[in-house]
């Protein structure tokens, strides 16, 4: 690598590290057996959206831009993200969320090797396709939807949930 390019990279790295140290250190939580119950218990009586994605899910990436926009526009929109990846993917998952403007949203990453067991605990009828979204009402009844959702669908739910 030419020296000049190396210096640029070095400078960029320094700037990057300053930026990171100034921000609040956000680490994804480890999603384990029982975590979903904890997520729901913390939101008793309140609507929220649970959104499962993966760093390998190309379909998920486009939807993240929409989710980030909605989070910005609707401060009361309670979104919980779960990356259905492996424990070692936490840093990459967090970096991707930060890049997409979702770095401040509550984020979990599968923290056990047996992903099948975790998926089953979330939903015994879910085959693992992503993205997968669950819309919880205040009574914690939920609706499950697979695939990328339209912004209008999400806005309609946010509006209904906010009433």
């Amino acid at each position: 690598m030419p020296v000049s390019k190396r210096l640029i990279v070095l400078a960029f790295t320094l700037i990057g590290s300053i930026g990171i140290s100034a921000a609040v250190e956000l680490v994804p939580k480890s999603f384990r057996s029982g975590s979903l119950a904890a997520i729901a218990a913390a939101r008793e009586g309140k609507p929220f959206m649970l959104h499962l994605w993966s760093i390998n899910c190309s379909s998920c990436r486009g939807e993240m831009d929409v989710l980030a926009k909605l989070v910005r526009e609707h401060p009361k929109f309670d979104l919980v993200l779960i990356a259905a990846d492996a424990p070692g993917d936490a840093a990459e998952a967090q970096a991707l969320l930060a890049e997409k403007g979702l770095g401040e949203v509550e984020c979990w990453v599968f923290g056990e090797a047996d992903a099948q067991r975790l998926r089953y605990e979330i939903d015994s009828g879910w085959h693992g396709e992503l993205p997968r979204s669950y819309f919880y009402d205040p009574a914690q009844n939920r609706i499950a939807l697979s695939g990328v959702l339209k912004e209008t669908q999400l806005e309609a739910w946010i509006a209904a949930a906010g009433r």
Binding site: S54, N56, C57, S58, S59, C60, H127, G128, E129, L130, P131, R132, S146, G147, V148
Partner: peptide, 8 residues
Amino acid sequence: QIEACPMH
């Protein structure tokens, strides 16, 4: 018909 990753 689904805009998702079936992973399958």
